[in-house]
Design a protein around this nucleic acid. Structure first.
Lengths: 226, 226
DNA sequence: CTTTTATGAATGAAGG
DNA sequence: CCTTCATTCATAAAAG
C-alpha cells in the first residue's frame, strides 16, 4: 500500500523529470540542406548529427520513462482505492482520515466508488438486465466490500443505467446524422472529442484496464526508440 | 461540428484514443550512411527523409499526449483519494473528458445561438413547462433551422432552465446573493429529500493543483514538437 | 493569461 | 419501466 507521503515523493520526482525534459526542447532536430553535387547530381536531404539524433532519442526516452512511471503510480493508486473506497461512501468517515481531511464530509447522495462502478458496469454488460431482488442483494453484498452502499442504490443504479442506455441508442439513430466531418490532418491530436457509440460492448473492460496504456506497450516504444 | 451530445459516455474516448496511439507506426529514424565523395571527401551523416522526420515528431507528440492523459488521470484519482478534495472526488471516474488539445476540435458542449436561445426563452415563458417528448421534437426541429442542435440539448435546456428559475425564486428571500454554487447551507432547501440529509461541502478545492506535473509543461513539449 | 461566472450535461433518487 | 427533479461537475464565455 502506498500512502500519501510516498505519493508526494513520486510526484516530485516526476516534476524533476519534466523539467529536464523541458530543457531539452531546445535543440531538437533541424533540417539541413546538403548539396552533394557529385557527378552533377544534387541531393537535398534532412541531415542530423549524432548529437541531434541522440537528443531526439533522449527526448523520446524521457517520455517513455515518464509514461512508465505514471502508469506505475496509477496502478498503485488503483490498488489503494480498494482500501480507500469505503471513505467515499455516504455518511461514513474513518476517524483516521478525519485527521487529514478535517471536514467530516458526508453526502446526501450515494456516489459509487470507482471500484464499485467498475463492478456494476461489468455486471451490467454481462447482459442480465434483470436485477431481481436476490440479485440485488448479492450485488450489494459484493459492493459493500468496496464502500458504503445499499440495495436501493444498486436498484436505482440499474434502473437509471438501463433507461439512459436505451435513450442513448434511440437518440443516435434518428435525427442528426451529422457525424463528425472534422477530419483532422494530424492523427495524433485528432482526439474526436465527441463520443460516437452508445455503450461499450466490451464485457471484460474494466475501469482499471481501459484506463490506458499498459506498461508493456510503453516499454516497447521505448525499446524501439533506444 | 462536434456537437453530438446525446447521453453517451465519455470513457470510450479514451479507449479509442489509446488505440490510435498504439497504432502509431514506428518507423522512427534510421541511420543511413551517405557517401558523398565529392572532392575526394567522404561524408558520413545520418539522413532522414521528411517522412521519417514526421514520424519522429509524431512519436514524440504521442508521448506528450500520453503523459497529459496520465497526468489528468492522476489528478482525478488524487482528488478522489484526498478528503479535502472530496468535492472533486465526487467524479465518477471518468477521466480525461476532453483533456488535451483545446485548439482543434474543442467544441464539446452545445452552445445555443442567440436565435435559438431567443426561441427557447419564448417557449419557456409561454408557460408550458411540460416539454414532453413530442414537444421536444418539435422544438428541436424548429431550432435546427438556426443551428446545430439535438433533442437532448433541448431537453437539458428546459431541465436546467426550470431548475434554475426555481432556485432563483426561492433564493430571493434570504440574503444569499450566491447564484447557485453555494450548497453549503444547513437547511435552506429542505424539501423532503431525505431525513438523513446534511451536507457540508468544501468549496475550495485547489488541492488538485499542487499535484505535480502540470499539464502546461507537457503541453509545451507537444507544441514544440508539432 | 488567470479567475469567475453562466450554463450544458451527468446522474442519483423519487413518483407514477 | 418511464419521467421528472435536485444536485453536482465541467467548461465556454465573460471578467479581471
Amino acid at each position: 500500500m502506498v500512502n500519501r507521503m510516498e505519493w508526494e515523493k513520486h510526484h516530485n520526482h516526476q516534476q524533476l523529470q519534466q523539467q529536464e525534459l523541458l530543457q531539452q526542447k531546445r535543440d531538437g532536430l533541424q533540417s539541413v540542406n546538403v548539396n552533394g553535387n557529385c557527378a552533377g547530381m544534387m541531393m537535398c536531404v534532412k541531415v542530423m548529427t549524432d548529437e541531434q539524433l541522440e537528443t531526439l532519442r533522449k527526448q523520446i526516452a524521457v517520455y517513455a520513462v515518464i509514461c512508465e512511471r505514471l502508469v506505475e503510480l496509477h496502478k498503485q493508486f488503483i490498488a489503494q482505492q480498494d482500501f480507500a473506497g469505503a471513505r467515499l461512501g455516504n455518511m461514513y468517515c474513518d476517524p483516521l482520515i478525519a485527521s487529514v481531511g478535517h471536514k467530516i464530509t458526508s453526502r446526501q447522495r450515494w456516489t459509487p466508488t470507482p471500484v464499485q462502478l467498475q463492478i456494476l458496469e461489468r455486471i451490467f454488460d454481462q447482459g442480465i438486465g434483470t436485477p431481481n431482488k436476490l440479485k440485488i442483494k448479492e450485488i450489494t453484498a459484493e459492493l459493500s466490500q468496496h464502500g458504503q452502499i445499499s440495495e436501493t442504490n444498486v436498484y436505482n443504479w440499474f434502473q437509471n443505467r438501463r433507461a439512459r442506455s436505451k435513450r442513448k441508442q434511440q437518440n443516435v439513430g434518428p435525427s442528426n446524422a451529422e457525424s463528425e466531418v472534422e477530419t483532422e490532418g494530424e492523427s495524433i491530436k485528432d482526439k474526436k472529442t465527441k463520443p460516437e457509440e452508445f455503450q461499450s460492448q466490451n464485457s471484460g473492460n474494466s475501469r482499471t484496464e481501459d484506463l490506458c496504456l499498459q506498461n508493456s506497450e510503453v516499454s516497447s516504444e521505448l525499446h524501439y526508440l533506444t
